[in-house]
Amino acid sequence: MSELKQELKEKIIEQLNLEDVAIEEIKDTDPLFGEGLGLDSIDALELIVMLDKDYGIKLADPKQGKSIFESIETMAGYIKEHRSR
């Protein structure tokens, strides 16, 4: 699980072009949106694509993203439970 969290932090920084953010700055329970990493709605769509592309998870309802993408912790938990690759 900790490896997955580390992997997610690396992917998020790289794929969302968070140029000024270091991996160690992202805490597992930090909110990804709003006051945390400050991601926006386009970033949310990118995360949905990332779930599909890298973990074989297709979100039928994009509204699910709100709880899944709350933090690295919640993302990793959801991926661990639903991944097909």
């Binding site: 969302l16 072009n17 386009i42 970033d43 990118e46 694509v49 599909d52």
Partner: peptide, 9 residues
């Protein structure tokens, strides 16, 4: 086939 929303915009 994984179109990027961030590129599309």
């Amino acid at each position: 086939f994984y179109p990027s929303p961030a590129v599309f915009v």
